[in-house]
Design a protein around this nucleic acid. Sequence first.
DNA 1: TCTGGGGTCCTAGGACCC
DNA 2: TCTGGGGTCCTAGGACCC
Length: 253
Amino acid sequence: MSGGVGEETSDQRSNDEALVLALPIARELKRKIAAERQLTATVGIAANKLLAKLASDFKKPDGLTLIPEREKVQFLRPLPVRAIHGVGRVTEEILNTAGLLKIGDLQDYKGDLRALVGSFAAQLRAFAFGEDDRPLALDDKIKSISSEETFLHDTEDRKILKKSLSEQAADVAAKLERKQLAAQTVQVKLRYGDFTTLTRQITVEEPITKAEEIYRLACFLLARERLVSRPLRLLGLGVSNLDLPVGRQLVLW
DNA sequence: TCTGGGGTCCTAGGACCC
DNA sequence: TCTGGGGTCCTAGGACCC
């Protein structure tokens, strides 16, 4: 890399030429969506995921925004810190309290971001300058499956809770079946009337697939610590540690 | 958003093993 | 064993995303 501030590097130039090549593709996509679905679509073109997402958020609806590499730092400056991927309510609050409101403030910040956001600091700083080397995640591997129900009225009625849990177990098992997966970990989630939320999970050696097995383990978790000691607002159930069901693992051969 | 549902990722503590 | 250090696994909670 060579070139000082404000000077266009050859890297940037070739990147931007590549981005421009995407314009006709984007226009064609929008045209097709409009023709076939009667819908508008907003497309963002940029050199990485972070910027492409911001670009696609930029002129809704029916927009088409390209962020050239040489303009990305300026493009980001006026946006609120919250626009950055990974900055949610809590992090936004922390940054704002430190006087960092816009992404430009982050770019100019001379202090140590680690004191504010811990291990997210390096990533956050890179994002503020539009740098993002995260690879595209093209695998669609599922890591967990879950279901939950918020009750109309808080309840500790065993009949209602059991029915809810068993329906959820059936949902989760159906999805496992559809995806041809088995689970080794079952988790329950509870929320009480005061919004206190807790989870309990158990990992078993033998991967499970059936609704009854999931349901039993969930009941065990609830019973073990007598968690249903007061009315619940929410009850949830999930599985993780997913893999091919035993007996299917060698099916390929 | 006094708060719906389904996900992912990260962190921290404890158990356990060598 | 009134114990050091480390690695790994499991568990629980929280932040965040769509």
